[in-house]
């Protein structure tokens, strides 16, 4: 959640400039909603319960969850207005998330 908080702090102005931030995880929506309310973020949380989308993106960490279940590989992707990938970051260590400055720079470069 630290990345979302970091992102939220800096991207709120970009949001007003019209960027859609979509946070995807297997979290059930009720939990994500609580998270969104708790963090007071303008994100759209979507639920990828069975990891179908993560799989389609090649972003599954097989057996990486605390109970040995499959979990998504943390990743951040910046798409331009045409839906084309302009920047992305996939980390090798799940404690590490892209620097919000880097994400913001990628968004501003669009």
């Amino acid at each position: 959640m630290a990345e979302l908080q970091g992102l939220g702090a800096q991207l709120s102005e970009a949001e007003q400039a019209g960027v859609e931030i979509v946070a995807i995880s297997p979290d059930p929506n009720e939990r994500s909603q609580k998270l969104a309310e708790g963090l007071r973020l303008g994100y759209r949380f979507v639920a990828d319960r069975d990891l179908a989308v993560a799989r389609r993106y090649g972003l599954v960490h097989a057996g990486g969850g605390p109970e040995g279940q499959d979990v998504p590989r943390p990743a951040t992707v910046v798409l331009d207005r045409e839906g084309v990938v302009r920047w992305f970051s996939v980390s090798r260590n799940f404690q590490v998330r892209p620097d919000p400055d880097d994400v913001l720079r990628a968004v501003r470069a669009l």
Binding site: L4, L11, I24, V78
Partner: peptide, 12 residues
């Protein structure tokens, strides 16, 4: 319409 930032996270 809009650029999108997709953030995949573990949920745990």
């Amino acid at each position: 319409k809009k650029p999108v930032v997709l953030v995949f996270y573990r949920g745990y």
